[in-house]
Design a protein around this nucleic acid. Structure first.
Lengths: 204, 204
DNA sequence: GCATCATGCGTACAGATGTACACACCAGTC
DNA sequence: GACTGGTGTGTACATCTGTACGCATGATGC
């Protein structure tokens, strides 16, 4: 839907002003980053149509590459989904890590968590929608479970630098729940309530 | 190919071996509860294969009904999914309601919540897997969003009979997150940690 | 008894999908 | 300049999917 604020997104999803589709001898594409771009586009398709509605053809069309390019770059649908969700988890964990490691005190860290939950980076529609698809997949398939395992381990480790292990676990769960809640609820919790909940969990 | 009246035996459909040999022309089913049974079976198929892997044929096979029965009872796949997820949400909310309304004090209610999270009724694998599929669908499609809206409203209302509105919201989020956490984590939070988290949220 | 019609059943069919594969082309290396 | 191996492209094809539709049947009301 909305392009989203991600700065690292390469170009646009649409055709880069292709040289007239009617041209039978369209210049061959030299596209060294194609695989990464396909993964990016795939995440968008997953967010918009769900895993159920994600097809090679849809991704190829959205990325403006021929269908054959899909089977060249990925060993089938599962490989593609795995690659895409791995990127999603790593990106998200990177932001989480960076934000938390910038905090210099418990209070700072708590406020950083509030910011992550109520901000727009971790909880952009595309990220949330794709994450939910990953959760559903990971709960059923061990191959995808390892992605969420690594992701959760990183989150816990980041929280653990500021909070004791048990509190880190609780915080992790609360973050998960609040994020989900805010994504699904028509009338989501306000920032004040989020902050109050975090403080109740972390207060000594 | 030919529409001839040659033996139309339904035995090739992987009959459940129960009627077996003595009955080549299996008696016509009289099955007044079929629709409800199909919904039940559908939830199982959704839990096992995800919405992406849920097909009319799979459900029909699992329920041991002919394919044609699907289009007779449901107006297409969307109608089927909607019906199934509605049943899932109502069942779950019923349990939640009943358990919480049996509590007679704040402490009772808090412990009831701990029981719901760590018990096996609300968090059976099938329920969790299907719920995650519903979440992913609801986040994208308004028609399914209304199911989760109603569900969340009932949860909040049930919590609201024991806790102030803000605490009820926080609890709801924490429950969601802890449940998800326990479903996805290899090393889930123990009962003690769950209880401690609930108490931190509800303590005055 | 029997008429009726909601329910049950088998099958056909158009379209979509994953995947394989043969060929075209470009960037380096000698 | 020729070679070569990776990269890009178009298309074919078996399979699966949703759905429609005609016929069978027996429960129900008379």
């Amino acid at each position: 839907m909305t392009p989203g604020p991600a700065a690292h997104r390469s170009a646009d999803r649409g055709a880069p002003a292709a040289p007239a589709a009617g041209d039978p001898t369209r210049a061959r594409r030299h596209d060294p980053q194609r695989r990464e771009r396909l993964i990016d586009v795939a995440l968008g398709v997953i967010a918009e149509h769900g895993v159920a509605g994600t097809t090679h053809r849809r991704i190829a069309a959205a990325a403006d590459v021929p269908l054959g390019s899909m089977t060249y770059h990925f060993d089938g649908m599962d490989d593609l989904l795995h690659a895409a969700f791995t990127v999603l988890a790593e990106r998200t964990a990177d932001v989480f890590d960076a934000t938390l490691s910038a905090a210099t005190s418990r209070a700072d860290a708590a406020e950083a968590v509030v910011g992550l939950i109520t901000g727009t980076t971790l909880t952009s529609p595309e990220t949330m929608l794709a994450s939910l698809e990953l959760y559903a997949l990971a709960a059923r398939r061990p191959a995808f479970r390892s992605i969420t395992d690594a992701w959760m381990a990183r989150s816990r480790a980041a929280l653990h630098t500021h909070f004791d292990p048990e509190t880190a676990l609780m915080l992790d769960a609360l973050i998960e729940g609040t994020t989900l809640h805010r994504a699904l609820s028509l009338d989501p919790m306000g920032v004040g309530t989020v902050r109050a909940a975090i403080l109740r969990i972390v207060r000594p």
